[in-house]
Write a protein that binds this DNA or RNA. Structure first.
Length: 485
RNA sequence: GCCCCCAUCGUCUAGUGGCCUAGGACACCUCCCUUUCACGGAGGCGGCAGCGAUUCGAAUUCGCUUGGGGGUACCA
């Protein structure tokens, strides 16, 4: 069988979008599954919106997600260049070929004329289709228009291509995920393939690039379905082999609209900044439209690749909900080695002076605070009381815990005993201490609450023994003294 | 407006005419564990959009309706 060649072709007009990441993933999975090649092509035709920062972001994000490409702008490959703006000189040749074969023609219409046609169509409740008024211009007419200073755009003759290669105007193709798809090509206007400024349009450039890069399978979002029919006609007109297409459902926001900034993060890098692990992100996004055959949802990309079948991908849209992503991120955090986690948490601890702790204490702190983490960034708030002399005490904690007679009794007793406590043996000491008060009718829970509130300013948090150990006797004593009346 | 796509718990999904009294995961609720929060464990709530048709039999096939999404550019 022919080697599968798939690609992801992001447009660097923004940071790598989570939806693009999913498309990239499915391409990657298909390549891995079939032993094919995964290619990265940067579609920076629109110079206005392109920036190097976005290109870097796309590279970095894809790498962070583990979606490494076999051919691309940085690593090269046999069919480069892989950046569209560097390919501008190769398009005219194919435009000329289409012109010569009669599948394309020059169009001198002005934007105003085109606009008028569209308005007319809207008024008549008809689909707008270009009038083709430039299709049969004589050489004299063209020369005259050119003399006026008008520069032509090149349009593709949909009807001619259709008639040359299809019996009916209804063009079909077998989509890898959606099955038979069709479209009445008489409803497609003669679209521009080369703008009057000489740059190719998207629909033309992709075909040329995919053709030249020998891309034989195109997996992309279903927003491209309508483009597919245009592209098929171009392939045929060029006498090129038509690739297989697979269209994925879109990812929607919870309100079923397009995922955008107002719904929160959209770029992979934003998710990372917010404390998501790329492993969790990619795993989550794989589950949008695909499900594992063994029901085990936590999987690496490689494991997913083994189990991946493009035909089994769901053809409907899916909604991006944070609940499951958060849960999954928590699962991935749990799986991290302590030292690895400790390193990854550092960016979220910049507001604290980590020098207050030894490396050993730092690791210990992470060890006892890691359990409830859903996001790496949750650590920021979770460890606040480990830093500084005294913790900030919540008003409610002060009133409901520290101000009670029971708490004061407990804390005074701690101060009575603390000098004799061996902080290396806190577990037993606290056990005994709780027992002492339990005999007096004070619940262990209340005993611990009093200490916790005094030392951390909170009623909830990490394991008490660990907290006291890390803080050390002096600090613990000082903090308790401060709240005892 | 026109064209196309899609439709199973709140969400992601399993399901390809009888194994379905529709399964799982997340979320939610209850209980257990417990020095708190959490983790973990055990339960629970909850769905085939509607209507017709085909069939002995339909979540599964067909049609219509409704709903959602996409496209409709000299953007990509």
């Amino acid at each position: 069988m022919e080697e599968i060649r798939v690609r992801i072709a992001p447009s660097p007009s923004g940071n790598l979008h989570i939806g693009t990441a999913r498309t990239a993933l499915f391409n990657y999975l298909y390549a891995k599954k079939t032993g094919g090649k995964f290619i990265l092509r940067i579609e920076d035709t629109d110079a206005e919106r392109t920036s190097q920062a976005y290109i870097d972001n796309i590279f970095d994000s894809l790498k962070a997600l583990g979606l490494n490409w076999d051919e691309g702008p940085d690593v090269g490959g046999p069919y480069g260049p892989y950046t569209q703006s560097e390919r501008f000189d190769i398009y005219p040749k194919y435009v000329q070929e289409l012109l010569d074969k009669g599948f394309a023609y020059e169009c001198f219409c002005t934007p105003e004329e085109l606009e008028a046609e569209k308005e007319e169509a809207t008024k008549n409740k008809k689909a707008y289709v270009y009038s083709k008024k430039c299709e049969n211009l004589t050489e004299e007419e063209k020369a005259k228009l050119r003399a006026e200073g008008r520069k032509p755009a090149i349009r593709f003759s949909v009807e001619k291509a259709q008639k040359a290669f299809h019996d009916t105007p209804i063009v079909h193709f077998e989509d890898l995920v959606k099955g038979d798809l069709h479209q009445d090509t008489s409803l497609i206007g003669d679209f521009v393939i080369m703008k009057s400024n000489g740059s190719p349009t998207y629909n033309f450039a992709v075909v040329i690039d995919d053709m030249l890069m020998k891309i034989n399978t195109v997996i992309r979002g279903e927003d491209h379905i309508s483009n597919t029919f245009k592209q098929i006609l171009i392939y045929e007109a060029l006498g090129a082999e038509i690739p297989k297409f697979g269209h994925l459902g879109m990812i929607l926001a919870p309100d079923r609209s397009k995922l955008s900034k107002r719904h929160g993060a959209t770029a992979v890098s934003e998710f990372v900044e917010r404390g998501y692990l790329t492993d969790a992100l990619i795993n989550f996004v794989a589950l949008l439209g695909w499900s594992p055959s063994d029901g085990e949802e936590i999987k690496t990309v490689d494991e997913i690749a083994k189990d991946f079948r493009i035909h089994e991908v769901s053809s409907s849209n899916s909604i991006f909900e944070y609940d499951k992503l958060n849960w999954m991120n928590g699962q991935y955090i749990k799986k991290l080695e302590l030292k690895d986690l400790a390193e990854r948490l550092k960016p979220y601890l910049k507001k604290y002076d980590l020098n207050e702790l030894t490396e050993e204490q730092y690791l210990h702190m992470v060890e006892i605070t890691r359990e409830p983490l859903t996001l790496l960034s949750d650590i920021t708030d979770a460890v606040e009381y480990f830093f500084g002399e005294y913790p900030t005490i919540d008003k409610e904690v002060q009133e409901t815990v520290l101000d009670t007679e029971t708490s004061q009794t407990v804390l005074k007793e701690v101060l009575n005993r603390i000098d004799g406590w061996d902080f290396n043996n806190l577990h037993e000491i606290l056990e005994e201490f709780r027992g002492y008060f339990k005999e007096q009718g004070i619940k262990p829970k209340l005993t611990m609450w009093a200490i916790r509130a005094a030392v951390t300013g909170r009623t909830r948090g990490a394991d008490m023994c660990g907290i006291l150990e890390i803080l050390g006797k002096d600090k613990v004593k000082a903090r308790i003294q401060k709240v005892v009346k």
